[in-house]
């Protein structure tokens, strides 16, 4: 992927291309912004531009050996650091530091992309500080984080911070059409509810049965939950509590769903709904709940999502939520 081929983030891409063109790339960047907005994609494209042997106007040519190696993840001077389990450990950072001290293999530069850098343990982050401040010539470190506030201030102050803003729904739909084969109405819906994060939309589109299939499964879980017995609620919770990612996706969809119910209850019109295509169903469901109940449900879901992100036991958190929702009616 070339910088020029990316959709959105025009300001950032212009700045990065200028840095490559004028050979003034900073030694450390922090790409901050919501999950799935395109930070890693941009970092890899930037890495390609830095490593390309015939850059064109600050961008990778896409044809040379280096560019093809980057595309196939085979470039010896482009290193990616991802969390091992729940965190980036000091051993991983030490390995990076060792690689940094070696001269580049193929060209003049070495690029390191640290994904989810906020998951570095404190020891790991401290270990990186000195090198982050002043790495050997030709080294570019790109830290990526959707929770930059969780990074040490000493890390942030050593980086040039680029903040990625959510894309417009039209831009998300361009990306969705390019990378997935989701049907048009699904693309349209996903681009509206992705929150400007194409990565999230692509993930939802890529689930089994596409987004509509996923939504159908979630709606079955939500439907009539307020009248369900305790045993039934626990059974439904078990269906999504097996995997943390699944549980988070489920919560995301629940939030959108109950938000739609609330909006429909207040306005009675389909214009402001995400799941516009299901207006009759939403209208019917909305009548079952009172405004206060819906607000309480939404708060509960948000609370559960925060607990999950803070590493609470997935199953217990989901069971708790479903029990509360079952009691909501």
């Amino acid at each position: 992927m070339k910088l020029a081929d990316l959709t959105g983030h025009e300001e950032i891409i212009r700045a990065l291309r200028r840095a490559v063109e004028q050979n003034r790339a900073s030694h450390a960047y922090l790409f901050a912004g919501p999950e799935g907005v395109g930070k890693t994609t941009t970092a890899l494209a930037f890495g390609a531009a830095l490593l390309c042997r015939n850059p064109e106007q600050g961008d990778a040519c896409g044809r040379c050996r280096d560019c093809r190696q980057v595309a196939a993840r085979n470039h010896p001077d482009l290193h990616r650091l991802v969390p091992e389990g729940a965190s980036i450990k000091i051993g991983q950072v030490r390995e990076v530091l060792r690689l940094i001290t070696l001269s580049p293999f193929q060209g003049q530069r070495q690029v390191f992309v640290v994904e989810q850098s906020d998951l570095m343990t404190q020891e790991a982050a401290n270990c990186l500080l000195k090198t982050l401040e002043e790495p050997p010539a030709g080294t570019v470190l790109i830290l990526i984080s959707d929770r930059p506030h969780a990074l040490l201030p000493t890390i942030i102050s050593r980086c040039q911070v680029l903040t990625f803003q959510p894309l417009l729904p039209e831009q998300v739909s361009v990306i969705l059409k390019r990378v997935t084969d989701a049907p048009d109405e699904e693309v349209e819906l996903l681009s509206r509810l992705s929150g400007g994060c194409p990565g999230r939309a692509v993930r939802l589109a890529g689930t089994e049965g596409g987004y509509f299939g996923l939504r159908q499964r979630m709606l079955e879980l939500a439907a009539g939950l307020n009248r369900a017995s305790l045993a039934e609620a626990l059974q439904r919770a078990a269906a999504v509590a097996g995997d943390k990612e699944d549980a988070l996706t489920c919560l995301e969809l629940f939030l959108l769903w109950y938000r739609d119910l609330l909006v429909c209850k207040e306005t009675g019109t389909p214009e402001l709904l995400f799941n516009r295509d299901l207006f009759p169903l939403i209208d019917r469901e909305a009548r079952i709940y009172s405004r206060g109940q819906l607000l309480r449900v939404i708060k509960e879901i948000e609370k559960t999502r925060d607990s999950l992100l803070a590493n609470v036991n997935t199953r217990l958190a989901m069971e708790m939520l479903f029990m509360r929702l079952a009691g909501a009616g």
Partner: peptide, 11 residues
């Protein structure tokens, strides 16, 4: 196997 072009080239 893999394409030989992908293999890192020594200067």
């Amino acid at each position: 196997g893999y394409e030989p072009e992908q293999y890192p080239r020594l200067p």
